[in-house]
Design a protein around this nucleic acid. Structure first.
Lengths: 211, 211
DNA sequence: TAGATTGTTAATCGATTAACAATC
DNA sequence: TAGATTGTTAATCGATTAACAATC
């Protein structure tokens, strides 16, 4: 597992997120057989400044052609390579409650090349069943399955009081990236990356803007 | 519906999000009968600088006592008032697919004082049924129910190609805040606030950090 | 009073945008 | 060549952090 070198500069997290957005726009363009796109067009579709688009890409190399723009298919391939989504990413989902269940059935992951290869729960009634073609294992088997199924990335959707313990276990089993839906700040080693998705905070802060 | 005045300065979106986080920490403190808290303690629990905590709060007034700190219950009440979550916020959920269904059953919203008062779908098999005590209406009734049920806020969880049309309709019906789970940039009037939650982007950008 | 911690201003840091030479 | 658009540097803008007087 490696990323295209960024020459030692540290890349802002926001740049990486925009890279993902570019990739999606480019995917749509490619499907419509558009051959090239300028930083201005790409920016417009996402509400971003064209200079920002160029600068984001420049962190990783020179992908455009002066006077022409960027070749859609080529740029998309480069970005996927940078993100590491040019190959299948294997995902484990821990916690098959309401949210976990939704994530199991969510089509958006598979569409971007992610594959949930195992789900885990501690509810005996769920363990052993199959949802959306994905087996649900007993959470006791977590470490073993992470190894055997070569899981790269964990999605946490467990109750708040179990989150830290599960995080410790997946990290110990070698996982270095966690998508955390639990509103608990996880304490993990520096080289483990956690992204937080906090639905309650999203809706609460939105309320501020109600007229 | 009103917010505590901020004296004309525009408040960064990030400040509002942190306010929500403070509120949650304070809620937990209150439950443990903690009486006061310093900006340092509050910051530590969220990985934030104490000066930032004080500055965030200072946008809205003076809530602390020099030499003492902040009174937990009092500060929490003030923040809830600022956010507008000191009263019930009435939510409509549009799109009862996998994700929508999960959001219907998601306990986190109710816990923060949000109440989903109606759900909508265009699938005849779903319309008329009740999930988690919430009725699912035909999407044709959207405008009418927004009015009759005094819906403040819409959650969008529809297919991508329907998102803009639905957004247009809810805005026309008077909604000014949308939580959008659909990976489509919505075009709305300036005074309508849209928050995007993009699960595919979250996981894709996380992949960059895999070792 | 002495110690602690706020509220706020100034300094720093980082990210976005503008500008323009390079070049297709 | 003329026109267009990149890649990149410099200018601007905004957000975070440090510092400290005010004050409980």
């Amino acid at each position: 597992m490696f990323n295209i070198s960024s020459g030692g500069r540290k890349i802002p997290k926001a740049v990486i997120k925009r890279l993902s957005l570019y990739s999606r726009v480019l995917q749509a363009m490619e499907m419509r057989s558009v051959e090239k796109i300028s930083s201005m067009e790409l920016g417009e579709k996402l509400g971003l400044n064209p200079a920002q688009v160029r600068k984001d890409l420049a962190y990783f190399g020179q992908f455009g052609v002066r006077g022409v723009g960027y070749y859609v298919a080529e740029l998309r391939k480069s970005i996927k390579r940078i993100l590491g989504t040019d190959r299948e990413v294997r995902v484990g989902l821990i916690g098959v409650g309401n949210l976990g269940l939704a994530l199991l059935s969510y089509g958006g992951f598979a569409r971007q090349g992610f594959r949930i290869v195992a789900a885990f729960d501690n509810d005996k009634r769920k363990v052993g069943s199959v949802k959306n073609n994905i087996e649900i294992f007993n959470v006791h088997e977590l470490e073993e399955k992470i190894k055997v199924r070569a899981i790269d990335l964990a999605i946490l959707a467990v109750p708040a009081d179990a989150a830290q313990e599960i995080a410790d276990r997946v990290v110990k089993a070698g996982i270095s990236a966690i998508l955390n839906f639990v509103p608990t700040r996880l304490v993990v080693p520096d080289d483990v990356k956690v992204h937080y998705v906090d639905l309650a905070i999203e809706i609460e802060s939105l309320t501020y803007y109600l007229r």
